[in-house]
Amino acid sequence: MLKPILVALTAIIMSGCANVPAEKQDERDPLQSLNRPIYDFNMDVLDTYILRPVTVGYVEVTPQSVRTGLVNFTTNLTAPTDAINAGLQGKPSSMGVNVARFLVNSTVGILGLFDVATSLGLEHQDEDFGQTLGVWGVGDGAYLMLPGMGPSTARNLTGDIVDNYALPEIALSTPQTLALFAIKAIEARASLMAQEKLLEESLDPYIFVKDVYFQRQLYELYDGNPPIKEEPTDFDEDFLENL
């Protein structure tokens, strides 16, 4: 089911979008005429009528301790993939930390519900295959606005697919996997509540989100130390962390 979608996306990326006016063309975003309507659908329909109301309700009725445990659990599931990607990127220290985190939190932390590893100085090292490809010299490719998922790039979409096949989540049942995806999506949306005003006040929210996304990718690729000076922005790190 996924293969035809990827083939179609690849064909669109290769052909580009000739109907985007030249003066508005962003070389990072050759699919702008396709991406903008998808962005509008994500924000005006999915977020307005589904994701935001569900997130608000979830935050109101779920105790913080329960939410923290669920986030810890989902983060722990990604630790093996983080470790593999750290190794592929030539980061033995980060790989070791992720392996140690998984072992500690899966045992003492009761399957990851409690983040014991962080209290021991083993901070989460977030590494994914999209970053791995970037370290290997693969460019971003076309910017993509995915229905129901938000911003990505051709490189990071490929990375997400590889990571999802490698995750322990694939051993779970479909309902369990969907539940984990829902938790991640809701918690990510909850963390952005405080940033909504920035988006609303931006001259072009679509461009605002795109620029934030690319800055976040640069930040992650170089572990917080990008080689180029970034322009000052009026959004904070929480916004960057959850795109």
Rank of each mutant, 00 (worst) to 15 (best):
residue 96 G to V: 11
residue 96 G to I: 10
residue 98 N to C: 11
residue 99 V to A: 11
residue 99 V to I: 15
residue 99 V to R: 12
residue 100 A to H: 13
residue 100 A to Y: 15
residue 100 A to S: 14
residue 102 F to L: 07
residue 102 F to R: 05
residue 103 L to P: 00
residue 104 V to W: 15
residue 106 S to V: 11
residue 109 G to T: 12
residue 111 L to R: 09
residue 113 L to M: 12
residue 114 F to N: 14
residue 114 F to K: 14
residue 115 D to M: 06
residue 115 D to N: 13
residue 116 V to C: 14
residue 117 A to D: 14
residue 118 T to D: 13
residue 120 L to C: 10
residue 120 L to Y: 15
residue 121 G to K: 09
residue 121 G to E: 12
residue 124 H to W: 00
residue 125 Q to Y: 13
residue 126 D to C: 06
residue 126 D to F: 12
residue 127 E to S: 02
residue 128 D to K: 02
residue 130 G to E: 04
residue 131 Q to K: 02
residue 133 L to V: 07
residue 134 G to H: 03
residue 135 V to H: 02
residue 135 V to W: 05
residue 136 W to H: 04
residue 136 W to L: 05
residue 137 G to R: 03
residue 137 G to Y: 03
residue 137 G to W: 06
residue 138 V to Y: 05
residue 138 V to F: 02
residue 142 A to I: 03
residue 145 M to S: 03
residue 145 M to I: 05
residue 147 P to M: 01
residue 147 P to Y: 01
residue 148 G to C: 08
residue 148 G to T: 05
residue 151 P to A: 04
residue 152 S to W: 06
residue 152 S to D: 06
residue 154 A to F: 13
residue 159 G to D: 05
residue 160 D to H: 05
residue 162 V to T: 13
residue 164 N to H: 11
residue 165 Y to G: 07
residue 165 Y to T: 02
residue 165 Y to N: 04
residue 168 P to V: 09
residue 168 P to F: 04
residue 168 P to I: 09
residue 169 E to K: 10
residue 170 I to P: 05
residue 170 I to V: 15
residue 171 A to S: 15
residue 173 S to D: 12
residue 175 P to E: 09
residue 175 P to A: 14
residue 178 L to F: 10
residue 180 L to W: 04
residue 181 F to T: 03
residue 182 A to I: 08
residue 184 K to V: 01
residue 186 I to V: 07
residue 186 I to A: 01
residue 188 A to E: 02
residue 188 A to D: 03
residue 189 R to H: 00
residue 191 S to W: 09
residue 191 S to K: 13
residue 193 M to K: 15
residue 193 M to Y: 11
residue 194 A to Y: 00
residue 194 A to E: 10
residue 195 Q to P: 00
residue 195 Q to Y: 04
residue 196 E to Y: 03
residue 196 E to V: 05
residue 198 L to P: 01
residue 200 E to A: 12
residue 201 E to Q: 11
residue 202 S to T: 04
residue 202 S to N: 07
residue 203 L to Y: 12
residue 204 D to T: 04
residue 205 P to K: 07
residue 206 Y to G: 11
residue 208 F to G: 07
residue 208 F to M: 13
residue 210 K to P: 08
residue 211 D to N: 15
residue 211 D to A: 08
residue 211 D to E: 15
residue 212 V to P: 06
residue 213 Y to I: 00
residue 214 F to P: 10
residue 214 F to Q: 11
residue 215 Q to F: 11
residue 216 R to F: 11
residue 218 L to N: 09
residue 218 L to T: 07
residue 218 L to P: 07
residue 219 Y to W: 13
residue 220 E to F: 01
residue 221 L to M: 10
residue 222 Y to D: 08
residue 223 D to V: 04
residue 224 G to T: 08
residue 225 N to P: 13
